[in-house]
């Protein structure tokens, strides 16, 4: 009986905690501030990673394949057209579009785990480069006070 009560208490605490933590993270990070912190990750990419060239650069199918992958794995948070949502920043921002393909690839590979972006190294390297090709093809949209979110 005692074991069951302990087990039940433990499970309640552990089941409730993820929801509470997720909610806390959301409240603790207003969008614009959080976006800036995620963009700052691009600048943290090591020089070696930043200098990497996109091996899919000349592949005519890379953008189309990258778009499919983006829809499957990224659009839930970044929006179908990459304008960003409440969950994740716009990929059309100057910070992203002016970053090198290598830096974007590095962030995609390592994620920004403490800011909610998972690591995507489970996608094979060529697929991550295909996503980078698609992101770079989006082009920059100038910042406005109320930036569009899709």
């Amino acid at each position: 009986m005692k074991e069951s009560i302990i087990a039940l208490s433990l499970m309640t605490a552990l089941l409730g905690a993820p929801c509470a933590l997720a909610q806390h993270e959301k409240l603790a990070a207003p969008n614009h501030k959080a976006d800036a912190l995620v963009y700052a990750e691009l600048a943290r990419a090591p020089d070696k990673a930043t200098a990497k060239r996109n091996p899919m650069e000349k592949d005519p199918d890379a953008v189309a394949a990258g778009q499919n992958l983006f829809k499957q794995h990224c659009s839930e948070c970044h929006g179908n057209a990459g304008y960003g949502t409440e969950k994740a920043p716009s990929l059309r921002a100057e910070e992203v579009q002016s970053a090198t393909p290598g830096a974007i690839f590095w962030v995609l590979t390592n994620g920004v785990v403490r800011r909610g972006m998972p690591v995507w190294s489970k996608l094979p390297e060529p697929q991550r480069w295909q996503i980078v090709s698609f992101i770079k093809s989006l082009g920059a949209v100038p910042k406005t006070p109320d930036k569009k979110r899709d």
Binding site: D61, A64, A65, N68, E125, P126, Q127, Q130
Partner: peptide, 17 residues
């Protein structure tokens, strides 16, 4: 390991990736 590392440009069920 995935059977193919590159993704196809079209959606497909039986693609190796």
């Amino acid at each position: 390991r995935p059977l193919a590392l590159k993704a196809s440009a079209r959606r497909c069920s039986f693609c190796r990736e």
